[in-house]
Amino acid sequence: MTSAPGPIALIGSGETARAGRQAFTALLESLPRPVRIAILETPAGFQPNAALVARKIGTFLREHLPEFQPDVRFVPARRRGTVFDPDEPLVVEPVEWADCVFAGPGSPTYMVRQLAGTRTWQRLLERWQSGLRLAFASAAAIAVSRFALPVYELYKVGADLHWVDGLDLLGPLSFTLAIVPHWNNREGGQELDTSRCFMGQERFAQLVRLLPPETTILGIDEHTACLLDFAEGVARVLGAGTVTIAKQEQSYSFRHGAQFPLALLRSIATTDGL
């Protein structure tokens, strides 16, 4: 009998706040202590302070999840062709050791470019298929989609609307996902709609039309997490906001405490709009 892949926590934002604590607690609660957590540095690997970004997350885990006695190590898979190359065995080693791997803020397209086809990513996939637990927040959640939203390129640089091929973590399980964190972002205030991960509803509607019709959009509000449990075949919503599943102009929304079948991410049968 083949075991199910490990559960995955997808976090819209707030990985070092209450929502993150809830997501990690749900993800790790059945593991023996101490829990071994590896933090993947790739999403912010282009930043001079990439190590500091990862270590702040490690500090959060140790200080706010003491019941798990977190043993934290780092995966410095920052850039191809350097001492931090994701193909270097010493870089990959913490993935072999971990009970759970986390990746978070940074650039989704950078993460895709640096990890696609590498030893780090391949080993993570192999271990996940054997039960390794995964947590992806913000940029990393986008990067593991089938179609990844190039946030910086569109929002900061003004590139033409497009999607890029993501790492497609769930593709082998027959999911075709575009994961969109920061779904309800309001940083733009009254003057600028920054919902839908800074795209705004009008621009995001145009982006949706560029996706193949079989694509399912998984929108995750800020300070909200969606826990995918493949052994049980269900997803749970944690945190302050809502998880939205949208496909072909139809959608479902689920708030904290709600549970829905993972099969819903493959087919939608409702008439609510995006």
Results as ranks from 00 to 15, higher is better:
Pro94Gly: 04
Ile220Ala: 04
Lys247Pro: 00
His182Thr: 04
Tyr155Glu: 10
Gly233Glu: 09
Gly200Gln: 10
Phe102Glu: 09
Leu10Tyr: 12
Gln22Pro: 14
Ala178Cys: 11
Pro7Asn: 15
Ala246Thr: 06
Pro66Met: 13
Arg80Pro: 08
Ala4Pro: 11
Ser251Glu: 06
Phe136Lys: 06
Asp85Asn: 12
Leu177Cys: 07
Val91Ile: 07
Glu63Ile: 13
Val83Ala: 15
Asp168Lys: 07
Gly188Met: 10
Gly171Tyr: 04
Gln22Val: 11
Asp160Tyr: 10
Ala178Val: 01
Leu173Ala: 01
Leu132Ser: 02
Ala4Leu: 05
Arg133Thr: 09
Glu29Ser: 14
Ala240Tyr: 09
Pro172Arg: 01
Tyr152His: 02
Leu90Phe: 02
Glu153Asp: 11
Ala17Asp: 15
Thr216Lys: 00
Tyr155Phe: 02
Ala235Asp: 12
Leu264Pro: 03
Ala135His: 09
Arg113Ile: 14
Ala9Tyr: 11
Ser174Met: 07
Arg55Asn: 13
Asp168Phe: 06
His182Ala: 06
Pro5Asp: 05
Pro48Asp: 08
Val112Asp: 11
Arg123Ala: 07
Val53Arg: 06
Thr242Asp: 10
Pro213Gly: 06
Ser3Tyr: 10
Pro34Leu: 14
Leu90Arg: 09
Ala23Leu: 05
Gly241Lys: 09
Asp272Asn: 04
Glu126Val: 08
Leu167Met: 04
Ile217Thr: 00
Ile8Asp: 08
